[in-house]
């Protein structure tokens, strides 16, 4: 065992100061970058909030409930935009929650052989990859002319925007609900079958309740995405500053207002737009935080 003797006779040197500094430096460096991600979020919130202060102090909370948008007279309000944002998002949810949940069930409960299932999951995920502006273009030249023939639709309006929005949030709902369904322990399924439940009794009475926090989390994430979705909505909603209960009437959304007017805005109008952005940011932030908490709870099960 001369080998052991040789190495034992060497003294073990401690690391050089340079190497230790390098090591600490690397860790501190990575720490700074990690915090900078969280810092960006705070920076973003502060900056948008700061720029909105002139409008906040001038219009207060009444901004949300006022319908006028008149730059020459410096009178601004976003009630039609708030209404259009919420209406288009909730119509989209009403369409895509049942469909998305159905797809999640169909693609998680062994109805299909695994390879077929995988291809279908991939196709639904691919739907999420289509850029929003392409959906908008398609909506203008295909969906709106199509709807004009079938319905009383005459121009871009709430309905085509909500339909395209529904398609765009479908992959989010499907992917997260499917994860939640798959994560339900196999034991629960077997116990339900053992008690004589049919497959659908198991799904409705056992699996969906067990996966509910993930499913609700997915729906909330989709809602957050729908509220902030810009391009497809801007191109299809008609950008009219009015509140109309008709699905076939042009409407507006906060994101569309920003996309349309930010480039030409100046003075107090910029601040009013920042205020609108702050409202949208606050809304999506609250929804996202709740959704994240629900989805993380799912991962802990």
């Amino acid at each position: 065992m001369s080998f052991t003797n040789n190495s034992a006779s060497r003294t073990i040197q401690s690391r050089s100061a340079k190497e230790r500094t390098l090591n600490t430096g690397f860790i501190v460096f990575s720490q700074i970058f990690a915090w900078s991600v969280a810092g960006t979020l705070i920076w973003l919130a502060c900056l948008v909030g700061w720029q909105a202060i002139p409008a906040i102090s001038k219009f207060g909370l009444g901004f949300v409930f006022t319908s006028s948008w008149n730059p020459p007279q410096e009178s601004f309000g976003v009630w039609p935009e708030v209404y259009g944002t919420l209406a288009s998002s909730f119509i989209a949810l009403a369409l895509s929650v049942p469909i998305g949940l159905g797809v999640a069930i169909f693609l998680s409960e062994d109805y299909l052989p695994t390879p077929v299932q995988r291809v279908l999951v991939f196709l639904v995920e691919l739907l999420a990859a289509i850029p929003s502006v392409v959906f908008g273009l398609w909506g203008i030249f295909v969906l709106i002319p199509f709807l004009k023939e079938l319905t009383p639709l005459k121009s871009p309006a709430l309905l085509p925007a909500a339909l395209v929005l529904g398609v765009m949030i479908l992959p989010t709902i499907t992917a997260i609900s499917r994860d939640a369904m798959i994560n339900v322990p196999q034991d629960l399924r077997q116990a339900a079958y053992g008690l004589g439940a049919t497959r659908w009794e198991t799904i409705i009475q056992i699996l969906i309740p067990a996966a509910s926090s993930g499913i609700i989390g997915g729906v909330m994430l989709a809602l957050g995405r729908a509220l902030g979705e810009t391009m497809a909505v801007t191109m299809l909603i008609g950008n009219a500053n009015q509140v109309s209960l008709s699905l076939f009437a042009p409407a507006n959304s906060i994101a569309a207002r920003l996309a349309n007017q930010f480039a030409e805005a100046s003075g107090l109008q910029v601040s009013a737009l920042m205020y609108a952005a702050l409202i949208l940011f606050g809304l999506t932030l609250a929804i996202n935080i709740i959704a994240q908490l629900l989805v993380t709870r799912l991962q802990k099960i």
């Binding site: 979020l41 973003l44 900056l47 509220l227 902030g228 994101a255 996202n288 935080i289």
Partner: peptide, 14 residues
């Protein structure tokens, strides 16, 4: 995760 949920138009505003 919250940053990834911020609407892209808000990121543009920022």
């Amino acid at each position: 995760n919250v940053l990834s949920g911020v609407p892209s138009i808000i990121v543009g505003t920022f």
